[in-house]
Design a protein around this nucleic acid. Structure first.
Length: 473
RNA sequence: GGUCCCAUCGUCUAGAGGCCUAGGACAUAGCCCUCUCAAGGCUAAGACACGGGUUCGACUCCCGUUGGGACUACCA
């Protein structure tokens, strides 16, 4: 390969950036970065009835969040209709395309009939051989433009991922390249644009494999050298059907809202179809360095949320407490634990986050688990109370409370010594004090080390919660 | 229906004809660590879809069967 690699991600803005699209974008991006090439975003909005500006923004936002930076674009196809028209005219003039006066209704009817008779619903080519003068005369009638496909022979696609694939030309339809409203269609514009933008490698989902021979013939008709193709296998849901909303969240930004780190999602997505030996966790630099289509598999992959969660927790553990504190802030505001606009003591927050980061799998969980650090009061879980708030425990708690009140240095270290002294005097194990203490301060039976928790909650709140617990609250 | 693609543990995958008694990761179970919960460590269970070839030898190559998926629009 050389340094002039140019690739594009070409979504249609009919929805948010979803998991499958994100992976296609990622593989394009990695390929471009690996080769020091150019990554382009092209918006395929020729279906004006389904495309919206809002979704264009959503797609850009999703890519930005994932860190897939653009070198060129976004280009919009709706801004290029004149260009496509001129190419259609060229084909028409050369007799490589023709006007079709069949109406969509007629076409649909014939299609259904063919299907009902078990025949191929291929266009019958009835407008193919209309005399030229007739087509000129009836130009006031609405027409679409069809591309004249070869009727025999085979077309070969040499795919970077799937290898050599042969197609029988007789099965190819004279597809419409220009609708009767004058707008061009996908299979045509994709070719014109890929040439126009000097795309060297077309990397897309393998739902496009069957489009490729049609597109190849358009390259041929213009005398253009086609780019290389790489068709990525699909991502499926747990039931092995195409990933959709039924399988849970599919939009990339939904994962942001659920508290995933973009690096974790990227790492997860890249392992769907690509591998580098036994390695599971990669930095972006490593991905760029190692990425190659030699290691891209050709079978579809099932999206497995559990592994994503594991990866996310790995990334959280390896993110600095300071950084995590910043990241969790919006989630704390969202959950109401911190009032909007209030700036907490970030040093304190980082300390709190540090104790929790290997216990939470997502930022949402992290924020939620900080309740007892941030809230004024905690609610005691009835089951925990019943199990640990027995007379012996309460007695120890009272001793603890009195000793703690004397502490001027309310640090984990001093707190631990205090616990030790009380337990030692009572001749019991640490657990018999630590658990009641945990329940009193956190409201539950699971938390980080109790000494750290005490320090972070702070002396005032600790004493107050202890008092309340001892008093039977 | 037709065309095309795909096929290793439940899931993601390693595997380039002998390195395979099929490796790793997630999930599951047990143990260890331990103030609880995690994290971490160790262990267990768990797969080459099936049938034919080719070969001295097939997870690996070929063919078929079965199963899954995609496409088959004046959608992209």
């Amino acid at each position: 390969m050389n340094d002039s690699v140019r690739v594009r991600f070409a979504p249609s803005p009919t929805g948010h950036l979803h998991i499958g699209g994100a992976r296609t974008a990622l593989f394009n991006w990695l390929f471009a970065r690996h080769h020091g090439g150019t990554f382009i975003l092209r918006i395929e909005d020729t279906d004006t009835s389904r495309s919206t500006d809002e979704y264009i923004q959503a797609i850009i936002e999703g890519m930005k969040w994932l860190g897939l930076d653009l070198d060129e674009g976004p280009f919009r196809q709706t801004a290029r209709f004149d260009i496509y028209r001129s190419y259609v005219d060229r084909l028409l003039a050369q007799g490589k395309a023709y006007r079709c006066y069949c109406t969509p209704e007629e076409l649909e009817q014939r299609r259904e009939q063919a299907l009902a008779e078990g025949k191929n619903p291929k266009y019958d080519g009835r407008c193919r051989n209309l005399p030229r003068n007739l087509t000129a005369q009836s130009s006031e009638k609405p027409f679409a433009v069809r591309f004249m496909m070869p009727q025999d022979g085979t077309t070969v696609l040499d795919d970077m991922i799937k290898g050599r694939i042969e197609f029988d030309n007789s099965l190819l339809d004279d597809m419409i390249i220009l609708r009767s409203d004058g707008s061009p269609t996908y299979n045509f514009v994709v070719v014109v644009d890929d040439i126009d933008m000097k795309i060297t490698h077309v990397i897309r989902g393998d739902d496009h494999v069957n489009n490729t021979p049609k597109q190849l013939h358009i390259y041929l008709a213009f005398g253009w050298e086609p780019p290389k193709f790489g068709h990525l296998p699909m991502i499926l849901g747990a039931d092995k059907s195409r990933l959709s909303k039924r399988h849970g969240a599919t939009s990339v930004m939904a994962y942001k809202d659920m508290g995933y780190l973009p690096e974790a999602l990227v790492n997860y997505l890249v392992r769907l179809g690509w591998s580098h030996g036994d390695q599971e966790i990669f930095t972006i630099e490593e991905l760029v360095k190692y990425f190659s289509f030699d290691n891209v598999g050709s079978s579809a992959a099932v999206f497995n949320p559990e592994k994503l969660i594991w990866l996310n927790s790995q990334y959280m553990i390896n993110t600095s407490a300071e950084k995590l504190a910043e990241l969790v802030l919006p989630f704390l505001e969202k959950s109401g634990l911190i009032a909007d606009g209030t700036v907490p003591d970030m040093h304190w927050l980082a300390k709190a986050v540090y104790t929790l980061r290997e216990r939470a799998h997502t930022l949402v969980e992290l924020a939620h688990s900080m309740t007892y650090y941030l809230a004024d009061k905690v609610e005691i879980d009835p089951k925990a109370k019943e199990k640990f708030m027995k007379p012996e425990g309460l007695k120890l708690l009272a001793d603890l409370r009195n000793a703690l009140a004397e502490l001027s240095d309310f640090s984990a270290q001093e707190i631990e010594k205090t616990f030790g002294a009380i337990v030692g005097k009572a001749g019991t194990k640490l657990g018999s004090l630590a658990q009641p203490a945990r329940v009193a301060i956190t409201g539950g039976t699971a938390s980080p080390g109790i000494f750290e928790v005490f320090e972070i909650v702070g002396k005032d709140k600790v004493l107050r919660r202890l008092d309340k617990a001892i008093g039977g609250g």
